[in-house]
Amino acid sequence: HMTFVALYDYVASGETDLSFKKGERLQIVNNTEGDWWLAHSLTTGRTGYISSNYVAPSD
Rank of each mutant, 00 (worst) to 15 (best):
D35M: 10
F4T: 02
E15T: 12
T3F: 14
I28V: 11
E15S: 11
Y54N: 07
V5I: 14
G48Q: 02
N30W: 10
G48D: 00
A56R: 11
D17S: 08
W36F: 10
R46C: 07
D59F: 13
T3R: 05
V55K: 02
K22W: 03
S13W: 08
M2F: 10
D17V: 08
H40S: 08
V55W: 05
K21Q: 11
T44E: 01
I28M: 06
E33G: 12
V11L: 08
S58A: 14
T32M: 12
A39V: 14
N53I: 13
L18P: 04
G48W: 04
L18I: 07
L18V: 05
T44G: 01
G34N: 08
S13Y: 09
A56Q: 11
W37Y: 05
A39M: 13
E15V: 10
G34Q: 10
L38H: 02
M2C: 14
D9S: 06
Y54M: 15
D17K: 12
T44D: 03
D17M: 15
V11H: 10
S41K: 01
T16L: 13
L7Q: 05
T16I: 08
A39T: 03
H1C: 15
I28E: 00
V29C: 14
L38D: 10
L42C: 12
N53G: 11
A39G: 04
D9C: 06
D17F: 15
Y54T: 06
T47Q: 08
V11Q: 11
A39D: 01
T44P: 00
H1R: 11
F4K: 01
V55N: 03
A12K: 04
T32G: 09
L42W: 05
S41C: 04
Y54S: 13
T16S: 13
T47M: 09
Y49M: 09
L42Y: 06
M2N: 09
S19G: 06
G14A: 13
Y10M: 05
W37H: 02
S52P: 15
D35W: 07
N53P: 06
T3Y: 14
R46D: 06
D59K: 09
G34P: 12
S51M: 15
S19L: 06
N31A: 13
F4W: 14
G48P: 00
M2A: 09
I28C: 11
F4A: 04
H1Q: 12
K21D: 05
F20L: 06
Y10T: 03
T44Y: 02
T44W: 03
H1D: 11
G48E: 01
I50S: 00
A56K: 11
E15H: 10
N31Y: 14
M2D: 08
S13F: 10
A56D: 05
E24D: 12
Y54D: 07
S51G: 07
G48M: 04
V5C: 06
I28S: 04
E33P: 07
Y54G: 05
S13C: 14
Y8C: 15
N53A: 15
R25K: 13
S19R: 03
G23D: 04
G14R: 15
S52E: 05
G48T: 02
E24G: 00
S19N: 05
T47W: 13
T44H: 02
V11R: 07
D17E: 15
V5H: 04
T3H: 10
A39E: 00
H1Y: 14
W36G: 05
P57A: 10
W36M: 13
D35R: 09
V5N: 02
I50D: 00
W37F: 06
T3L: 14
E33Y: 11
Y8E: 09
W36R: 15
S13T: 14
G23W: 05
G34L: 07
L18A: 04
I50L: 07
F4V: 13
L38R: 03
L26V: 05
T47K: 07
L42G: 02
S13D: 09
E33Q: 13
E15R: 08
S58G: 10
G45R: 05
A12R: 04
R46S: 06
T44A: 03
V11P: 04
T16K: 14
A12H: 04
N30S: 13
P57G: 07
G14P: 02
S58V: 15
W37E: 00
G45M: 05
L42F: 08
E15Q: 10
L42A: 05
G23N: 04
R46V: 05
D17P: 02
V55G: 04
W36S: 08
Y49A: 02
A39C: 04
G14T: 13
T32I: 10
T47D: 05
H40M: 15
T32L: 11
D35C: 13
E15A: 12
H1T: 12
A6H: 00
D9Y: 03
Y10N: 05
I28F: 03
N31Q: 13
D59Y: 12
A39S: 02
V29P: 04
T47G: 03
G48I: 02
L42M: 08
T43H: 08
G14V: 13
Y10Q: 02
N31W: 14
T3C: 12
H40K: 15
R25C: 14
S52W: 07
D35Y: 09
K22Y: 04
W37D: 00
L7E: 03
T3Q: 09
Y8W: 10
L42S: 05
T43R: 08
S13M: 13
W37M: 06
K22M: 07
L7M: 08
G34I: 07
Y10P: 00
V5S: 03
H1S: 13
M2S: 09
S51K: 15
M2W: 10
D9H: 04
S51F: 14
D35A: 10
R25E: 10
P57L: 12
L18S: 01
E24S: 01
S52N: 06
V5T: 08
Y49K: 05
R46Q: 11
F4S: 01
H40P: 00
L18R: 01
G45S: 04
D59W: 14
L7T: 05
K22S: 06
V55E: 02
L42P: 06
L38E: 04
V29I: 15
V29Q: 07
G48R: 01
R46H: 07
V55Q: 03
T32N: 09
N53Q: 14
H40T: 15
T3E: 12
A12L: 02
V11N: 10
K21R: 11
W37N: 01
S52C: 12
F20W: 02
T3D: 06
T43L: 10
E15Y: 08
